[in-house]
Design a protein around this nucleic acid. Structure first.
Lengths: 133, 133
DNA sequence: TCAACTATTCATGAAGTCTTGAAACGTTGA
DNA sequence: TCAACGTTTCAAGACTTCATGAATAGTTGA
């Protein structure tokens, strides 16, 4: 990963609402959520959410897909993994103590917390199958 | 780790010069480097470097120690590990694909690259043994 | 005590980001 | 065709961060 992309991802993550947004979408899983649902859940105005969503999508941390009149957002796991890998490997050179600090197990996170609230579209509305530009 | 601390750390990391600074100090190891040496290595003005150093130290990513007329800076491995752990565990809930993306081995980083250029003080100048406020 | 050295702080202006509300755009169903 | 809906875009102002050079402060050795 280039440094410029890493900087874009770190800047995108350095904001409370956007961190909440990532957490929500990680919990939701690959199905993702439509923008309006995210706005209601996080209590954000439509325009503010749209601003945050596009910041995260431009940074490669989210994917979006237009479905009917909704736009469904989901985390881009590869993008999230890449920025963490950048910090761990490129930046910290796999420094043994850094690695030790962040690779401890977390038995306190129950498995069901990881993929809750899967989003289901109303019947009859299929996905378009391609990622939005 | 609280979200406010994570945000401070992410903001501090979202800057090219500061990422270079972390990389340099990770490579240098626990001995650290004095501010002037860092400024010369990275080609930064003294005031600009001081600004970046205090941003990183306030975010808990560096430690400093006054030694003779120098201030020696070194990475805070626990702090660096904590922000990576925050992203991986608290934010991404150990999402399997995210974890898979960032835990691949990196045999391309030679071991000697991790702790090069250890800094040695001129003889007779001992450390004060306490971290600067 | 004084000059040299190391590092930090301060003031200034430039540049960038954030928030808000209004307007615009495309989709859907009547 | 038209109104309702979901979402994005835009403009303006508030706020924050950044870069620069000058001033300040502490340490050392003569």
């Amino acid at each position: 990963m280039e440094q410029s992309k890493a900087l874009a991802a770190l800047s995108a993550l350095a904001h409370g609402d956007r961190l909440d947004l990532i957490r929500l979408l990680v919990q939701t899983g690959d199905g993702g959520l439509p923008a309006g649902e995210i706005a209601r859940t996080l209590g954000l105005s439509a325009s503010r959410l749209s601003f945050h969503l596009s910041a995260l999508e431009q940074a490669g941390l989210l994917r979006s897909q237009k479905v009917a009149r909704n736009v469904i957002y989901a985390v881009d796991a590869a993008g999230l993994g890449a920025i963490i890998a950048y910090l761990l490997n490129d930046c910290c050179m796999e420094h043994p103590e850094v690695v030790a600090c962040c690779r401890h197990d977390r038995p306190d996170i129950p498995a069901e917390a990881r993929l809750r609230r899967p989003f289901r579209l109303p019947e009859g509305q299929g996905a378009e199958g391609s990622t939005k530009t």
